[in-house]
Design a protein around this nucleic acid. Structure first.
Length: 851
RNA sequence: GCCCGAGUGGCGGAAUUGGUAGACGCAACGGACUUAAAAUCCGUUGAGGUUUUGCCUCGUGCCGGUUCGAUUCCGGCCUCGGGCACCA
């Protein structure tokens, strides 16, 4: 037990360092209790160890930590783990820059990060941390890859892929943001390469359908991002026969089968493999080569912008629109993309703006087939893409466009030339990377046997240490003979290893499973533990992962569910995206130089002030502007709490020895409520007692239900302000020490998840033993929290004219009496006819008069 | 272009179910304490008006509607942020 000494001043630097050690010694960081308690899995997205944690990290982890700490105190068995997403480009680029080996650099960064996390009082059990670049971990990442491979969910295929010239590697679609590399921001080009993909596109519909399981726990805006990314659209797949070549037909996807009669030409993407096959005449071949050259010189961004001029050329061939037997010319054009749909389109210039511009430029006929009013409009200056009535459409003329889509589709199905079709924008997930710092893809290429998966018993395929890891277009492992050359596990003959490594998003798609049994060396995870802990109850992390990690992880879990390994379909029941921290109106970032490092703050004011301010600065899910004076305010509040509590402790100690008859040395009392009932409390004391219970109610609800940490803190501030009022207005000899004790203890408990250090220090200073972080979270008594008096607002015609404090639940008739006798109200109602009197119990009265 | 958010004092924000707009904090100003400063404490702080210790009018992006009553609900617009995007 520590005794009160000279402690007039709050010195965070002294107490925080001391308590960090105490907590580590006493294992206060682990919030696991007992499997008989209800479980709760709180998880924050684990960090890339690219250096010291930044403010965004701090916000993320502090939010998760407060939730975990409160729930643990409410009797939950809490899993609140930490680890490091250690493979990948950021770590590797940083290593190259520093001239260090990625492993050393990563481990050094992890060390700094771990220290910082401990320093800000996070409740992580570091004995259970995981590092994805450890062979113990990536062995199982490789194991999952093999599982996907065996299920037919991983495949090597040739496709146009995104190539980042600066990172010297391919990227997944999700890692290309507006045509630029997610990591280095340089322009991304296209290459046709043979790469490994995970077949996420087959799960598009399931990813959409299962969103209904997330409706409660995920913000709508995140689901919208995913919905947009998956990009479902309904329509028809229609076959167009190539004229003059028996048996060749080209399918196209359209969302508007109702416009089929308006097709006047047909376009293939310039890269479409059919282009070279179908062009016969040498003249056309030359012309096409010319146009293709121009188009391939256009970057993806250029081609993706609507402003760029549409160019193309005729191929000399025709296709037949089976619906009306019309023969239409086949063109190539820059605005048709190989990746989307079938890489070919039917062009309807009257009803598609792009087709309209193209047809106008090249003099292709325009036939109107949808009319808003059923009339034919000879000339238009733009395409009409709205709904209307089908015209010039044979037997379908007169049908509404909505109905026409269905009717035409049925007709196509009957005739066997088309079918209802759902198209998705979601592409397969490209996971190979031509970089060193990642988990090697466990595949062997044998001259005899072809692609051979590495047998499970040979895992992990170790990433060799001694490699020239600088990116050079091909994986650095390709130049590492000791790694590449191997023998075929099937025939024993000479073979070569796959030298690409896996996208780090593969590592992070299952880490939350590993946390359930982090030391298991027999399997990726222990099913019993996963069945107990998973799914994650509360996930916290940046929204920038909405269409990356959060989609990949959902997909991964669905595949594992299908394989029978898991019993749940969604990994994260609730997801809370924290807002970005800004400085000077811009997102804090190293490259812009507008950084406030959390360490600057905790070195100056202490971790508690950092935590308090981060939570107080605004709603946790909205972006906030960093303010230095805001931190000072937080620090001022903590000083205020410190002085208040120290004074209260002294008061309690002094009066204990003078046998004040109102003093009750027992704490916690068996039945606090009865105790106070039998005591005569002054008006202010009653108010304080009530405020305490209201505060407990509000803080608990704001943290656990509303995620409004800022209002939870302002409620505690109000309580502190009121206790100060008591301390200053009432002489010590007249103070009720039982109440002071009750207020002081509970104030500290309410603060303890938010500002763990100061709460613990004051708790100990007051003579308590153990740790405040093991004390049960207080309940509130609704009866005590209930106000006795309530301000009733008197309105006339909806305008506030007077108000009065009346006992709660005063009957309507009595309130009305007060209202009608109010001079102020009379002033507005005298001589006027009262039409209506509205009485809202405990709120207001509104007198409606004729004016 | 389509989809999702948001818009409240000098600033961050609060108002949880349609019922007192501006809680809590920051900044600013005035005062107390001090030789002085820091720290601390007290007071003022949406705008305008006024017969000034009280009261009145206006006020939650803009216009309109529903309602006894709207920051909150509905319709239309504006601005900002975000997602998708020559996506067929």
């Amino acid at each position: 037990m520590e005794k009160i000494s000279v402690n007039k001043f709050y010195k965070p630097e002294e107490i925080e360092e001391k308590l960090t050690k105490k907590w580590e010694r006493e294992k206060i960081y682990s919030l696991k209790s007992d499997k008989s308690d209800p479980k709760y899995y709180v998880l924050e997205m684990f960090p890339y160890p690219s250096g010291e944690p930044h403010m965004g990290h701090a916000r993320n982890y502090i939010i998760g930590d407060v939730i975990a700490k409160v729930l643990s105190r409410k009797g939950y068995n809490i899993l609140h783990p930490i680890g490091f997403d250690a493979f990948g480009l950021p770590a590797e680029n940083a290593a190259i820059k520093n001239g260090m080996h990625p492993r050393e650099s990563t481990m050094a960064n992890i060390d700094r990060m771990r220290k910082a996390l401990k320093r800000i009082g996070m409740s992580y059990d570091f004995d259970d941390e995981i590092i994805t670049s450890d062979p113990d971990y990536y062995k199982w990442t490789q194991w999952f890859f093999l599982m996907f491979y065996k299920m037919g969910m991983a495949e090597k295929k040739e496709a146009p892929v995104n190539w980042c010239n600066s990172c010297q590697t391919v990227l997944a679609n999700e890692q290309v943001i507006s045509g630029r590399c997610e990591r280095c921001d340089s322009l991304v080009g296209k290459r046709i390469l043979s790469q490994w993909f995970l077949k996420i596109s087959g799960y598009a519909q399931r990813l959409l359908d299962d969103m209904k399981l997330l409706k409660e726990g995920w913000p709508e805006r995140v689901l919208t991002i995913q919905r947009n990314w998956i990009g479902r659209s309904e329509g028809a797949m229609v076959d167009f026969k190539l004229s003059g070549s028996e048996g060749i037909s080209i399918p196209v996807f359209t969302t508007r089968p109702d416009t089929l009669f308006g097709v006047t030409f047909f376009i293939l993407a310039p890269e479409h493999p059919l282009v070279d096959k179908i062009v016969e005449s040498e003249d056309y071949k030359k012309e096409i080569e010319k146009v293709k050259n121009i188009i391939s010189g256009q970057s993806d961004i250029e081609r993706g912008s609507a402003e760029i001029e549409k160019i193309g050329c005729f191929t000399g061939r025709y296709v037949i629109n089976t619906l009306n037997g019309r023969e239409v010319p086949v063109w190539i054009a820059n605005y048709v993309l190989l990746e989307y749909g079938t890489g070919a389109i039917m062009a309807v210039p009257a009803h598609d703006q792009r087709d309209f511009e193209f047809a106008s430029k090249y003099g292709i006929p325009i036939i109107e087939v949808i009319s808003p009013d059923g009339e034919s409009h000879r000339k238009r200056s733009a395409a009409y893409s709205g709904e209307g009535i089908m015209i010039n459409s044979g037997k379908f003329s007169g049908t509404s466009s909505e109905k026409g889509r269905k009717d035409v589709t049925s007709y196509l199905e009957e005739k066997g030339i088309g079918k209802f079709y759902v198209n998705y924008k979601l592409r397969d997930w490209l996971i190979s990377r031509q970089r060193y710092w990642g988990a090697p893809i466990p595949i062997i290429y044998c001259e005899e046997c072809g692609i051979v998966p590495v047998p499970e018993k040979d895992l992990p395929v170790l990433l060799p240490y001694d490699v020239d890891f600088k990116p050079k277009g091909l994986s650095p492992l390709f130049y590492c003979d000791g790694f590449v050359n191997t023998t075929c596990p099937q025939c024993g003959g000479k073979a070569k290893r796959e030298t690409d490594t896996m996208d780090t998003f593969v590592c992070s798609s299952w880490y939350f499973l590993r946390y359930c049994s982090p030391h298991n060396d027999k399997a990726a995870f222990d099913s019993k533990e996963v069945d107990y802990w998973m799914p994650v109850d509360q996930y916290v992390g940046g929204i920038e992962h909405a269409s990356m990690h959060l989609i990949y992880a959902r997909f991964f879990i669905k595949v594992l569910y299908d394989s029978g390994l898991l019993k749940f379909k969604e990994p994260f029941i609730k997801y809370f995206p924290h807002g970005i921290v800004y400085l000077g109106g811009q997102k804090m970032s190293k490259s812009k130089g507008n950084i406030v490092n959390p360490s600057e703050i905790y070195n100056k004011y202490g971790a508690d002030a950092l935590r308090l301010y981060i939570l107080f600065m605004g709603p946790a899910d909205s972006p906030v502007e960093w303010s230095d004076s805001g931190v000072e305010g937080a620090n001022r509040f903590l000083n205020r709490v410190w002085r208040l509590v120290i004074k209260n402790i002294e008061l309690i100690d002094n009066i204990k020895s003078t046998h004040n008859e109102r003093n009750d040395p027992e704490y916690p009392g068996k039945d606090i409520k009865d105790k106070f009932k039998n005591m005569k409390l002054s008006r202010l004391e009653m108010e304080l007692y009530r405020k305490l219970h209201q505060t407990i109610k509000k803080v608990t609800n704001d943290i656990l239900v509303r995620f409004n940490f800022n209002t939870a803190i302002s409620a505690v501030m109000e309580l502190v302000n009121l206790i100060y009022k008591y301390q200053e207005e009432v002489p010590d000899s007249k103070k009720n020490t039982s109440l002071v004790k009750e207020l002081t203890w509970k104030l500290l408990i309410l603060l303890s998840p938010i500002t763990p250090f100061i709460a613990e220090e004051l708790w100990l200073k007051a003579g308590n033993t153990g740790s405040i972080h093991r004390v049960r979270w207080p309940d509130y008594d609704p009866e005590i929290a209930r106000e006795e008096l309530v301000t009733i607002v008197f309105q006339v015609n909806g305008k506030l004219r007077d108000r009065m404090d009346l006992p709660v639940d005063t009957p309507a008739e009595e309130i009305k009496k007060h209202v009608l006798s109010s001079e102020k109200v009379k002033h507005y109602t005298d001589g006027k006819e009262i039409i209506k009197e509205i009485v809202v119990p405990n709120k207001l009265v509104n007198i409606v008069v004729k004016s």
